[in-house]
């Protein structure tokens, strides 16, 4: 027996392409190029090295700002989750930073530090950091006191307690911060590049917009979506599987 469910993902993708093709045929306008044309532009800009260059730069900015935001956020989140006084003091700060619009942070960073790479990275970090802190803080508050007591009376020490007792409990929260963080940072990085950098995906998209090059915009978008899917499949999913293997 053939299981039709196995082909659902491929079928739905095909349906998507068919609808796209139909729409662009019906509209017959520059604003919605057909899939074949987008694929051609995609291939062309890959071959010329333009797309890999800009995508690579954006990815680099993503990795740097994401790593710093996650590291700092986890550390601060754990401290605030474990220390009620510090938490009460800094809670307002968190609320403020959570609610400052991303665009405002970006503009202020550029105004204060100039149109430089570090200002761009800093702007992304400031946008992401409060989110990580809040997620990890919530996770730390739900830590199992029984297991912490066990760690204490068996004198496990700080390092062992963190690695074996606390971290595995925080793992779901870290993964959730990672997923929401990637989605958020992607979007913010584009704005950062659009406003103050002369390379990267954001800059290119801005250029295409001015040239009214819709096929270019779509080709870059496809590259974008593909990279995110790759990160999910190659890094996040295996991490999930490895850390959840103890569950029944």
């Amino acid at each position: 027996m053939i299981n039709p469910r196995k082909y659902f993902p491929a079928l739905s993708l095909l349906a998507f392409l068919a609808i796209w093709q139909g729409m662009s045929f019906y509209l017959n306008s520059n604003t919605l190029p057909p899939p074949a044309q987008v694929a051609f532009v995609f291939w062309q800009s890959c071959a010329s090295g333009q797309l890999p260059y800009h995508l690579g730069l954006t990815l680099l900015r993503l990795v740097v700002s994401f790593s710093i935001a996650m590291l700092l956020g986890c550390a601060i989140g754990i401290v605030l989750g474990r220390n009620k006084k510090l938490d009460a003091f800094f809670d307002n700060w968190l609320v403020i930073f959570l609610n400052v619009p991303a665009l405002v942070t970006i503009i202020l960073c550029y105004v204060w530090f100039g149109l430089v790479e570090s200002a761009a990275i800093l702007a992304v970090i400031i946008n992401k950091l409060p989110n990580v802190i809040v997620t990890i803080r919530e996770g730390t508050r739900t830590l199992d006191q029984d297991l912490l007591d066990m760690a204490r009376c068996y004198h496990l020490g700080k390092r062992k307690t963190l690695v074996h007792v606390i971290w595995p409990q925080l793992h779901p929260f870290v993964m959730s911060a990672t997923r929401s963080g990637l989605a958020l940072i992607w979007k913010i990085i584009l704005v950062v590049e659009l406003l103050g950098r002369s390379n990267g995906m954001g800059y290119q998209l801005h250029l295409f917009f001015q040239l009214f090059d819709v096929a270019g915009i779509m080709a870059y978008t496809i590259a974008f979506v593909a990279v995110i899917q790759l990160i999910e499949l190659m890094i996040l999913k295996p991490l999930d599987r490895k850390s959840q293997r103890w569950r029944r």
Partner: peptide, 24 residues
């Protein structure tokens, strides 16, 4: 120096039996 056997076993669910013991 104590060994504490709690009312419920308080094993780390993400470590195997052996790892739970080796840890202490």
């Amino acid at each position: 120096k104590i060994g504490y056997i709690f009312q419920n076993p308080r094993l780390l669910p993400w470590r195997t039996v052996r790892e739970n013991i080796e840890l202490v």
